[in-house]
Design a binder for these strands. Structure first.
Length: 497
RNA sequence: GGUACCGUGGCCGAGUGAUUAGGCAGAGCUCUGCAAAAGCUCGUACAGCGGUUUGAAUCCGCUCGGUACCUCCA
């Protein structure tokens, strides 16, 4: 059973084989920190966090590089070249670096809320200007870039004559060149399809660095080529990012890196997550339909009926295969919230179950077999291009069995020796280690737990005296505080927030 | 306009030739002082029209509808 991934480059599922056995290099395009992260950003970083975790689970030593884009891009190519970050900085009267730091910190905070592991390296574009300039120089030396008025452009037409430009994004070069004719304001470029490697900075531009071509700033795509090869080598295993980055960003990265590394394809496997949509439309600044992560967590947005816990979002994203769109709605998130609660409560109950002392063959061999099969399929589903949705579906099939064991509808003896232990181990592994789900509970707090024990004891006493007025007062009072008491079948009481 | 992709029960979503996906919501029942939770049972869906096939949500064609990329974008 081997891992298969859908490679956007070949448009098919392929067996995953790292270039160096045992080691995996993975580069994922990070955020542009010129503004606050929104729900759309949650998808790639949760998706690739699970990929990262799963690869490690498979025993690979993974170097996970995710950049922070903190140097400006062009607002709208074809019009005036505007550095996105410097424009915003003027509006907010902030230093560019101050702005970038603010949003970088906010981004990292959000990643922590989602319980995403930190990447091995999180390089910034501004920290790698030297490497980018070096790379541009190499491309010029190789004859695939030209200078015009202090800017440097990549010669796409020349590149396309020798290499398959457009293969990743399924673009036909001739079509792209044809649109050249009726385009204006692009005098500097030889062809419309050319893209900037270096942009001369206009006088009022705040972010600027000295270069062989004068003061300016790097083009959008060069940072990822420079940083990925610096930390992962000229050929590495996985390159990930959102589907919207396929063109032009990833296509251009490939072109730059191919020239610098003499024809080597920079990454073997190109993984692209699909978009999060809202009312069927991609969430994005240009659509004016973004929900920022801070708004999502606080519920402070006209479109939101309530606040959503980061784990609810993580769970909802994992319930969808990463290559499908996920259509956001309050209903969808609330469904995820309840589903996660049920799953997690079963998981916690599972941890408290004990296997019988004496090992006996399964009294219900069919059930025992089903439990084992459902668990075994976790790996198979995940190996099929990270189908987290199917793994979760299987977990939900285990929930009634676990709850049955807890309530003693299902006698423990129905399961064969070792099955319960395996189930406990597998659920912990998958839910927490691989899927990265984590539920902070007040039960972890010893002091609070003690207080709860006391209240539950008092209520129990009242109930035994049929003093339901008091028992209901305790339960309702706690309920008003958001703590729910549940009377269990065996006379015990459980509670949750 | 070009290039891809998608259209699954009230909602979200798996699924690429024959299986009940799964979740949420809804209905009934059981347990229970009541409640909540839990358990059991219930929906036979796959845009439309043709075709291929013993058999199609799944393959092919057409129609309709939608989305994404072609410009910054996760």
């Amino acid at each position: 059973m081997t891992l298969q991934v859908y490679n956007s480059y070949s448009r098919q599922k392929e067996v995953f084989e790292p270039i160096t056995p045992g080691l995996v290099g993975m580069y994922v395009c990070g955020p542009t920190v010129s503004g606050e992260s929104h729900l759309g950003h949650a998808r790639p970083y949760i998706t690739f966090d699970v990929v990262y975790r799963y690869l490690q689970h498979l025993g690979y030593k993974v170097r996970y590089v995710r950049n922070i884009t903190d140097a400006g891009h062009f607002e709208e190519e074809g019009r005036e070249a505007v550095d996105k970050i410097s424009t915003k900085a003027v509006l907010e009267k902030l230093e560019p670096m101050e702005l970038v730091t603010k949003y970088t910190n906010l981004f990292r905070w959000a990643m922590k809320q989602f319980n995403n592991l930190e990447p091995s390296i999180e390089p910034t574009a501004t920290g790698h200007i030297v490497e980018q300039i070096e790379m541009i120089k190499t491309i010029m030396t190789e004859g695939y870039a030209y200078e015009a008025n202090g800017s440097v452009y990549f010669d796409v037409k020349k590149y396309a004559a020798n290499y398959p430009y457009g293969k990743l994004s399924g673009r036909v070069m001739d079509d792209m060149l044809e649109t050249t004719r009726d385009l204006d304001g692009q005098e500097e470029k030889r062809n419309k399809a050319d893209f900037a490697l270096w942009k001369a900075a206009p006088p009022n531009h705040i972010m600027r660095w000295a270069s062989p071509w004068g003061e300016g700033f790097p083009g959008w795509h060069i940072e990822c080529s420079a940083m990925s090869s610096k930390y992962l080598g000229s050929e590495f295993d996985i390159h990930g990012g959102g589907m919207d980055l396929q063109f032009p960003h990833h296509e251009s990265e490939i072109a730059q890196s191919t020239i610098c590394h003499h024809g080597k394809l920079m990454a073997r496997y190109w993984l692209h997550n699909n978009m999060i949509t809202i009312n069927g439309k991609k969430m994005g600044k240009s659509y004016n339909n973004v929900i920022k992560l801070t708004e999502l967590f606080s519920g402070n947005h006209p479109m939101l009926e309530k606040a959503y816990h980061p784990m609810t979002i993580r769970f909802a994203i994992l319930q969808t295969q990463y290559r499908s769109t996920f259509d956001f709605s309050n209903e969808a998130l609330q469904a995820a919230e309840r589903g996660l609660k049920r799953l997690w409560e079963a998981y916690e109950a599972l941890g408290k179950l004990m296997e019988p002392e004496t090992a006996q063959p399964a009294a219900d061999a069919e059930l025992d077999g089903r439990v084992r099969k459902l668990m075994a399929e976790f790996d198979a589903f995940m190996n099929d291009d990270f189908n987290t949705a199917k793994v979760l579906a299987n977990m939900f099939e285990l929930v009634p069995i676990i709850n049955g064991l807890k309530d003693k509808h299902v006698p423990m003896s129905d399961l064969g020796p070792g099955t319960l232990g395996l189930l406990q181990q597998k659920m912990a592994l998958w839910l927490e280690t691989i899927f990265g789900l984590k539920m902070a509970t007040e039960a972890d707090n010893a002091l609070f737990g003690g207080v709860m024990e006391l209240l539950i004891g008092l209520r129990k006493e009242a109930r035994s005296k049929k003093d339901f007025a008091t028992s209901d007062r305790i339960r309702n009072g706690l309920g008003a505080l958001g703590i729910q008491l549940k009377d269990e079948k065996d006379g015990g009481v459980s509670w949750g927030v």
